[in-house]
């Protein structure tokens, strides 16, 4: 969402990059030979895990994007409670619900992983952008550096602060 807060810079960006896979575009299959991928969010379920590996295999520069991807953050707040059944039970097997059950349709609903973890725990990450969310300004600076073929300078509060 913060990405869209770059506002009119998106218009400039549209001329310079091709967005090939994202929630805001329609292709359903992650393509080969992608230059840069921003991965947002922690690894919380088996779908996330599978996609992370697919992205790594087909991408030159993988960016861990936002505090959840970098540290697991709020998503990881379930970890100290134990495995996923504790949170699932509370949400789906409460006595006040009609048809209480843990959603389980095997082909469709992915299982939660035992422990939520940051992206770099499961694949190699080339660059970290913290922030909850990273500000549009921070994202733009990273993109401008990458477009110029340089590694972005992740220095100082403006580029590195969590939260």
């Amino acid at each position: 969402m913060s990405f869209l807060d770059m506002d009119e810079f998106l218009i400039d960006l549209a001329e310079k990059v091709e967005v090939v896979y994202s929630p805001v575009v329609d292709p359903k299959i992650y393509p080969a030979d992608v230059d840069v991928a921003f991965i947002e969010g922690a690894i919380a379920n088996t779908d996330n895990l599978e996609l992370a590996h697919k992205i790594r295999k087909n991408t030159k520069i993988v960016v861990s994007f936002g505090d959840c991807a970098v540290t697991a953050n709020v998503t990881g707040m379930r970890n100290p409670l134990g495995g996923p059944n504790i949170v699932l039970d509370r949400a789906y097997r409460d006595a006040r619900l009609l048809r209480p059950q843990i959603p389980h349709d095997d082909d469709i609903v992915p299982d939660l992983v035992e422990r939520v973890c940051p992206v770099h725990n499961v694949i190699k990450v080339d660059l970290f952008i913290p922030g909850c969310p990273p500000s549009a300004k921070r994202i733009r600076k990273v993109l401008e550096a990458l477009l110029a073929g340089k590694p972005p300078e992740m220095i100082g509060q403006e580029m590195l602060k969590f939260g």
């Binding site: 990405f3 310079k16 896979y21 921003f38 991408t59 959840c68 709020v74 909850c132």
Partner: peptide
């Protein structure tokens, strides 16, 4: 939710 949110923004880049 915050965990996974808007997802991935991979790009094919022209310099």
């Amino acid at each position: 939710c915050s965990t996974h949110a808007v997802g991935q923004m991979p790009m094919h880049v022209t310099m």
